[in-house]
Simulated assay, not measured.
Amino acid sequence: MRLRIFTEPQQGASYETLLSVAKATEDLGFDAFFRSDHYLKMGDMSGEPGPTDAWVTLGALARETSRIRLGTLMTAATFRYPGPLAISVAQVDQMSGGRVDFGIGTGWFDAEHTAYGIPFPSLNERFERLEEQLEIVTGLWGTPKGETYSFEGKHYTLADSPALPKPAQAGGPPVLLGGFGAKRTPRLAARFADEFNLPFHKLDDTELAFGRVRTACEEAGRTKPMTYSVAQVVCCGRDEGEYRKRAEAIGRDPESLREEGLAGTPAEIVDKIGKFGELGAECVYLQVLDLDDLNHLELLAFEVLNRL
């Protein structure tokens, strides 16, 4: 079981804060540092000093780290055109020496689109655009050097693109898709994804979602293995008092957090991770909400990661 640290910088984090978390992630032995791709805070958090761009941040972290993988859960297809997105991700992959995983989704938070002047089409159109973006980005990365790439779709058209630059990873970074959708999401995952991620759902829902993707892979005749993963809010304490203090610091009710996330003592968290593993999860993204609490990361490394 691989454990990855997953952050939500739009809730309030400078680049310096993210750098300290990424370096701790690497030093403590976690597999990867991931971040959300959002431009507006959610809930009661201040959001200060303001948002940081996901791929600008990851490009900088690519030069400040040497081992951990880097990626997004999830880049919003509404934020960028697919051609420039393919260029940005390929460049960060080069800068990191081939350590990027590329998570992408439809985008869902309409308020951030309104706040920063980004068009927010209907859900159906967002899925259409996501599918075309996946086709284009993977097509650009997979085009042999010296050849050109063209695509004509409903929303995007490319003509005779040189399909450069190439990522460091042959064929491009692994593609992550996720969500609880019953039809379109499994179909797109079966076609494009190297990894399927289900965020913030309980065990029963996780089993159901994984099953739908497995069925979609079978129906598509896919033989390439799929990695299955989950993302969960994490809140750990050596004892009940420390756990409750950390839950309070992130504004969460300790009892409901225990039920809905990976929360409690290290033993409780190890046990629940094991249950996700029994469903086929090979990787868990630990959503860390208090980015100033590096002692929390140390506890997770020594008392959870080391037990796995």
Rank of each mutant, 00 (worst) to 15 (best):
1 M>T: 07
2 R>P: 11
9 P>S: 03
10 Q>A: 09
15 Y>F: 15
20 S>T: 11
24 A>C: 03
25 T>K: 09
26 E>P: 01
27 D>G: 08
28 L>D: 10
32 A>E: 04
34 F>M: 12
34 F>E: 09
36 S>T: 13
38 H>M: 06
41 K>M: 03
42 M>P: 00
44 D>A: 13
45 M>L: 09
46 S>R: 05
47 G>A: 06
50 G>C: 04
53 D>I: 00
54 A>K: 00
56 V>C: 07
61 L>C: 09
70 L>T: 07
72 T>A: 14
75 T>Y: 05
82 P>H: 10
82 P>Q: 02
84 P>K: 10
84 P>I: 03
84 P>R: 10
87 I>Q: 14
89 V>K: 02
89 V>W: 14
89 V>A: 03
89 V>T: 04
93 D>L: 13
94 Q>N: 14
101 D>T: 10
101 D>W: 09
103 G>A: 12
105 G>M: 03
105 G>T: 02
106 T>I: 12
113 H>N: 05
118 I>L: 00
118 I>Q: 01
119 P>S: 05
122 S>D: 08
122 S>E: 04
124 N>V: 10
124 N>M: 07
125 E>L: 00
126 R>M: 09
126 R>N: 07
127 F>G: 05
128 E>A: 13
135 E>D: 12
141 W>S: 05
146 G>S: 05
146 G>N: 07
149 Y>I: 02
150 S>F: 12
157 T>Q: 14
158 L>N: 04
158 L>P: 08
159 A>W: 08
160 D>H: 11
166 K>H: 11
167 P>H: 15
167 P>I: 15
168 A>E: 13
168 A>H: 08
169 Q>I: 03
170 A>V: 09
171 G>Q: 06
171 G>F: 04
172 G>A: 14
172 G>T: 13
173 P>D: 11
175 V>S: 10
180 F>V: 13
181 G>H: 06
181 G>L: 10
185 T>Q: 05
187 R>C: 00
189 A>F: 11
195 E>G: 01
196 F>G: 02
204 D>Y: 01
206 T>Q: 05
207 E>I: 13
209 A>P: 07
210 F>V: 06
211 G>T: 02
211 G>C: 13
217 C>L: 12
218 E>Y: 02
219 E>Q: 13
223 T>R: 12
230 V>R: 01
233 V>D: 12
237 G>E: 06
237 G>D: 08
237 G>P: 04
238 R>K: 11
239 D>L: 10
242 E>F: 08
245 K>Q: 14
246 R>D: 09
249 A>R: 13
253 D>K: 11
256 S>V: 08
257 L>E: 07
259 E>I: 12
261 G>L: 12
261 G>N: 11
265 T>F: 02
265 T>L: 15
265 T>S: 15
267 A>T: 08
268 E>H: 03
269 I>Q: 10
271 D>P: 01
272 K>F: 04
275 K>H: 07
275 K>S: 10
275 K>D: 11
276 F>K: 08
277 G>H: 04
278 E>R: 12
278 E>Y: 02
278 E>M: 07
282 E>A: 09
283 C>I: 00
285 Y>H: 15
286 L>I: 05
289 L>R: 12
289 L>T: 02
292 D>L: 10
293 D>R: 10
293 D>V: 06
294 L>W: 02
298 E>T: 14
299 L>Q: 05
302 F>I: 00
303 E>R: 15
304 V>C: 07
304 V>A: 03
306 N>K: 15
306 N>Q: 14
